[in-house]
Design a protein around this nucleic acid. Structure first.
Length: 110
DNA sequence: GGCGTGACGTCAG
DNA sequence: ACTGACGCCACGC
């Protein structure tokens, strides 16, 4: 099997738990390419048209939605809020709370 | 086989 | 904090 970067990336995206978000860089790193953030972009664009991956859980390093307003931004924003993700000022997500870390966090109180 | 592409990331000014 | 420039690299044509 030739598992392409795209396929690995897709699997990772599928594994993003509901209510969490991941960054392009994080996905790229987990897929084996710390510098492959841009490849993730391609994968995402493709996956949208191919599968129903939780593309809306992937945002940029600033914790913000990368899609341009009027072309997906609002939709993604809505989908995330619906999953419990909270947006702060500047429509930014608090990555320290919602970033997906493929490993369990210690029990933390709020 | 070569080139452009891109929902990014990082650094310099 | 903001802007511009550059780097990275799999994939499609």
């Amino acid at each position: 099997m030739v598992e392409t970067f795209e396929q690995r990336t897709r699997e990772l995206i599928k594994r993003i738990p509901k209510g969490k978000v991941a960054t392009f860089g994080l996905i790229a790193t987990m897929a084996g390419n710390p510098r492959g953030a841009r490849q993730v972009v391609r994968v995402l664009s493709s996956c949208i048209a191919k599968d129903k991956l939780p593309w809306h859980r992937v945002i940029n390093r600033e914790g913000k939605i990368s899609l341009p307003i009027g072309n997906g931004y609002e939709e993604q924003h809505r989908l995330l809020e619906r999953e419990g993700v909270v947006f702060g000022l500047g429509d930014r997500v608090d990555l320290s709370r919602f970033l997906w870390t493929s490993r369990r966090r210690k029990l933390g109180r709020s």
